[in-house]
Amino acid sequence: MIRTSETMYKYLRPDKTFPHVWCPGCGIGIVMGALVRAIEKTGFTKDEIVLVSGIGCSGRMSTYLDFNTLHTTHGRALSFATGIKLANPELNIIVVMGDGDATAIGGNHLIHSCRRNIDLTALIVNNNIYGMTGGQYSPTTPMEHKASTAQYGSIEKPFDICKLVEACGASFVARSTTYHAKMLDAMLSRAIAKKGFSVVEAMSQCPVQYGRRNKKGSPVDMMMWYKDNSVSNPAFKKIPPGEVGEQFPVGILVDIEQPDYLERYSKIVKKACGDKL
């Protein structure tokens, strides 16, 4: 068993201020722990990992972890990561984004990274809200839920991130929650090892901006909600459509083999060089 706290000491930047910036009970710390355990499992050195993050609560992750870290502009993390991967395919690139980061302002980059199947790992921390800016509704805020910009309840239909990226052609798609922290690190290590574009959606409680406004109770209550409503993917498929309710599937949802962008690009190089190769 990989112990989180002990492993963290190996990967945290000692000169940063701890405890970290996230609110008490925030799930992002659990997600970061799972990420570190996953990396520890893959056996890559710190120098071989690039951690790219966007803007928002989850974006702070890049500050704390001792890898090559890049804290980009809001929503653009995947485009920066694409450039890094193309320039140095040897690097293992993990892109941490929030739900607003990845599916609102960065939605275009997300769907095209899937379509392109570039070999990156996207970790989308979904807390259903814009936490850092004060609880505005995001593309994953459920209908009728409240946010600081949806005081009467959200009237927009939320995204199912996993369905979205699956439809766009991602090679590996998985979902886990902060309650299923152990499954989360297993999904992440699979995603990191996977060649092609992989997405792991980590459902993570925001007890302050989302939970409090929507009477979701304590951080523990929110995690228990994940426990009660999550269903393994095979079991989820057997639920009759009318009885799904708030339930959602967790685990590996997509895992397919297909050539990634760089593999296809090497064919272009061969064509361009003709006999010269």
Partner: peptide, 27 residues
């Protein structure tokens, strides 16, 4: 492609600029 370089047509100009920054960071 003939000189060992990479060409990519991105989804917009925002990501184009992001990608060249990333590439430069990778040397």
């Amino acid at each position: 492609p003939k000189v060992g370089g990479t060409f990519i047509q991105m989804e917009d100009e925002i990501s184009s600029m992001g990608a060249i920054i990333g590439a430069s960071l990778a040397g």
